[in-house]
Design a binder for these strands. Structure first.
Lengths: 342, 342
DNA sequence: CCTGATTCTGATACCGATCTCACAGATCCA
DNA sequence: TGGATCTGTGAGATCGGTATCAGAATCAGG
């Protein structure tokens, strides 16, 4: 197919009748170059459409101007939003963004990080798929690769992180339900492997305990984070003899599933069941009534992560910094007050 | 920060007491290598944690094992889904995916493509932001860079493409409205710059003309593809004295906006207004009634695009191939029948 | 025992850009 | 006028890996 090989400094130099060294100097504006020679080089470069070869530059100078982003799932609106923000922020500093989704699979994550490492990217922003077995991450950190963790923080990993107060947010939500008289509050959460889900579950448990309520395992369902699994889990929870009066879901995908499931088994929100979901999402304002949610400042996560990463790339060597954003409970119409006689 | 420089073939060769050449042969399994020497090399490589440097490989062999993807907006669920599919397909052939969103901005798209070119990526999958001024794309094609266009096809660009029958799908939707007795059918579409929107508009116009209905400019609103703009456009359309009885929106973001706007001005679907949107989306089944949409086979686009791209990368030199998927009208509850006395 | 093929290995060129170094010519000050 | 400094330039090393080539060692067959 005779892919035309691109023009190199050599070509430009030849066209301008100078050496490669001089051409490079003219193109990059360093060292001494005669104004006349420089002009000829620039003209030749423009004429030949010289672009430079990042790969060669990267080899010489170490590292491609690329930031790697490893989200759990790019289709999840949360990560899509963050990816977008990272992209914008990275572009501001002349970096390209390489997105490689781990699909919440530890093996895949390992392979991807290996790949990024081999590509000599400048730094990585990662949402680790697992709370355990993170030797691969530990090694990267040890080797000095700039890494920023987002959304999911691993306490024993000495690197920067940006996340929200998952436990506090969950606790606030559950306490809101308790304050409205609910006692049988169900939880649907992800495999505890993911840090976020674990913390949110912890918030749920703490809220119950703080109010002297028992933690009933029958009210807790585990589901992987897909709409279908969430539907199944919801149906399981609500086909028990003593039905929960409220439900707390730990992410927007699960909330979506719960919504669908409750509708299909004929339970009305908030008359039959009250619902609070973690993470705000479009759908939440489209339903009738609208759904009460724990909102995270999604838009801040990406920019802050990039900022921290760039500082590391530039050589900052402070001890790990951890940014923790507060969540906000947005009360809409999906929680009802239960009258509870003393 | 003393970023530990990674181990090179040189290190491995030294550790195994062989030359770089032999080490490379052992590691890549080509040429003749003594079994004993090979073993020593492999052992040394494992011990030192040798990973290889893609950048150096790329320089020698031409091109990074990367596929570039330039969507209009990664937050748009359509592109997020396609990105995911591309990622999976690319991984199957040992390619990484580099996503760089153009944000529907032509200048940005140009810059991004330049970047990708400089990175020597193997090929690109692009959803062009504009129907015109595509000299930058034309040049890439001319230079032999493998490119596959998705979603939006530029007829005068000699390269592969994957898209859906936008005109036909739109036409089917509008004819469905006509068949249900609607005559004043409004359209909200994007800036005609984007090919997709233009084709869908063309379908709208053809449907009307085929049934002898006038194309009334007052029924056509232009909006950029954001929820807020779509809301404004909808309100504008429906505050006219002679209100439309039906609305066709050309993408899911606009449909979302229309939904919100209609609710806010107190119009009920489908009693007051019938609605059909192009592109199926989650929300469409969450509303009451559910929304009738023109569905595209989203899941097929990514895999087919990658398949075509890989063939080009491997050197296929057939003339440009164009895959065009059919759309499917999914009738739900957002279209009402208007009784129209003869 | 010698020729020719086969196996193994190291030296070396190369990809493209950058950077150091040395050197030539111009300029400058004493 | 001569040494020192400043300009401008090209030769060549370098980044890390891969491919070519030639030479050494082993082995087969006549």
């Amino acid at each position: 197919m005779a892919r035309t090989k691109s023009t190199t400094v050599k070509d430009v130099a030849a066209a301008a009748n100078v050496s490669r060294a001089t051409a490079a100097r003219a193109l990059n504006g360093y060292g001494y170059v005669g104004s006349e020679a420089a002009e000829r080089v620039l003209e030749a470069a423009a004429r030949l459409g010289y672009r430079g070869n990042r790969v060669a530059q990267a080899l010489r100078q170490g590292g491609l101007p690329i930031i790697g982003f490893v989200p759990g799932d790019i289709q999840n609106p949360f990560f899509a939003r963050v990816a977008h923000d990272i992209d914008v922020a990275a572009r501001g500093s002349k970096h390209n963004l390489l997105i490689a989704s781990s699909e919440e699979d530890l093996e895949q994550e390992r392979a991807l990080l290996d790949n990024l490492r081999a590509l000599n990217v400048r730094g990585m922003i990662v949402a680790p798929a697992s709370a355990n077995d993170n030797l691969h991450l530990a090694r990267l950190v040890r080797e000095g690769t700039p890494i920023v963790l987002i959304d999911r923080v691993l306490d024993d990993l000495p690197c920067d992180s940006v996340a929200v107060d998952n436990e506090g947010g969950a606790r606030e939500a559950v306490e809101h339900l308790i304050a409205n008289g609910h006692r049988r509050i169900a939880l649907i959460h992800d495999d505890a492997r993911i840090v976020t889900a674990r913390d949110r579950q912890a918030g749920y448990v703490k809220a119950l305990q703080a109010h002297g309520l028992p933690v009933d395992q029958r009210l807790i369902a585990v589901s992987s984070s897909t709409v279908q699994h969430a539907i199944d889990a919801t149906i399981r929870l609500f086909s028990q003899p003593e039905r929960p009066t409220a439900l707390f879901t730990v992410d927007s995908v699960m909330t979506t599933g719960a919504l669908l499931a409750l509708r299909s088994i004929g339970l009305t929100i908030p008359r039959d069941v009250s619902l609070i979901g973690f993470d705000d999402f479009d759908l939440a304002t489209f339903t009738d009534p609208q759904i009460t949610v724990v909102a995270q400042p999604v838009g801040k996560i990406g920019p802050v992560a990039v900022k921290m990463l760039l500082e590391r790339i530039r050589g900052l060597s402070e001890p790990p910094r951890h940014v923790r954003f507060q969540t906000r409970l947005i009360c809409r119409g999906s929680v009802s007050r239960i009258f509870r006689p003393a």
